[in-house]
Design a protein around this nucleic acid. Structure first.
Lengths: 214, 214
DNA sequence: TCTGCAATTATACAGTCGTATAATTGAAGG
DNA sequence: CCTTCAATTATACGACTGTATAATTGCAGA
């Protein structure tokens, strides 16, 4: 006669549940690192019970793989999206790309945090490393192609060095901006990035917001 | 009559044991991330039994704190050491400092790995965050002072921006070089770093090893 | 309205974690 | 040589981990 009060639940579409689980995992990783993303905690945050995770992901690592792939994809997509709505002028395109890379939503403390947390997993796990390298090289190659389109006279063997330097600069600003969100004034990172990359490449990338003459 | 075959051991000086435990912890963190640095594994690698850890460190986090402080200190010390044996010429000093920062032993896959692993702990743990910020700002301040000493005419309000940009560039090269040790030719990162920072600051930092004229 | 299946919950299990504490033993000092 | 104390080992404990599997139940289709 004792009523077994089981937790009531609603059936959801597969994609909905997977999304919720991935979002919960990324949330936890960003807050407390990989160690905080336990099966039980992920399930609790997604509003389900732990057993359900294994119904949608064969193993916990599978879930983490999916989560990492998602956030890396989101980063590159967000950065490249600005190119869709930018005129074909090469300088303007590079300027827009650089600025977008050190600005919300690409520059995001959560993204930086998650990226750092996954660095180690990516060294052992083949699938994770593939996602990592694809994101990394994809970004650098895109940047290099933007640099190659610039109207400037420069030795072709300098292209690789320029791309590495600009990529390193953007990476550094991205990481520092994500780790110390209050350490920089609004728009400061964009200004610094554009000025520095302009100097490296020998072109004028300074934003046109302020009128100033040398 | 049964002989309890206890593991034989040697008594060591306190500093020796602490060093061994810290080194073992850093070793494990660099290989498998924070999660791999368990009490039992650290003890095994240091050649002792797990219980001994709590004899030298009140808690496991204490050990990790000590380990992080040690590796961060080693990084800044290694980078700043080159200034001891460098002539007072400001350009030469900056050149030596930049080059040393993206070269062994400062640029080290293990150091990069450990740095990334500790990023999350540093967000919660006050002591760790203090060590982190001290290392970070200490490095940037030192870099900024080197830049300020340069013989060049530049607005003083540009100094902060220059320091942030150069620091970001060095950080980016350091991280990429540590994550992809085989992705760059020997000396390539030094060359790229010096050329790019020279361009940002408007001074000639190119290494004198190769004779070339524009 | 009822049946059937899959989505979901519930429970169990073997490891491993960090920590606490008792038992041993190396080695220095007298 | 013997005593003594701390360095070290050994053992235990409760909590938490990921995973496996059985028991329920929401809900679409007949």
């Amino acid at each position: 006669m004792t009523v077994p009060d089981r937790r009531p639940y609603r059936r959801e579409a597969e994609e909905t549940r997977r999304d919720a689980l991935i979002a919960a995992a990324l949330d936890l990783v960003s807050e407390g690192g990989i160690e905080a993303a336990t099966v039980r905690e992920i399930a609790a945050r997604a509003g389900v019970t732990p057993g359900l995770i294994r119904h949608y992901f064969q193993t916990k690592e599978d879930l983490l793989r999916a989560a990492y792939a998602r956030i890396m994809e989101r980063l590159t997509v967000d950065a490249a999206r600005v190119l869709d709505s930018t005129p074909p002028d090469p300088v303007a395109r590079l300027r827009a790309f650089v600025a977008a890379s050190v600005r919300h939503p690409v520059l995001d403390p959560v993204a930086v945090s998650v990226w750092a947390s996954f660095l180690h997993l990516a060294r052992r796990d083949d699938a994770l490393r593939a996602a990592h390298e694809a994101g990394y090289l994809g970004y650098r190659d895109l940047l290099q192609s933007l640099i190659a389109d610039l109207p400037r006279k420069s030795a072709p063997e300098r292209l690789r060095a320029d791309a590495i330097a600009c990529n390193a600069l953007i990476d550094g600003l991205w990481i520092e901006g994500g780790l110390l969100p209050e350490g920089f004034a609004p728009g400061e990172l964009e200004r610094i990035g554009l000025t520095a990359i302009g100097a490296i490449l020998g072109v004028d990338l300074a934003p046109v917001t302020e009128k100033e003459t040398t």
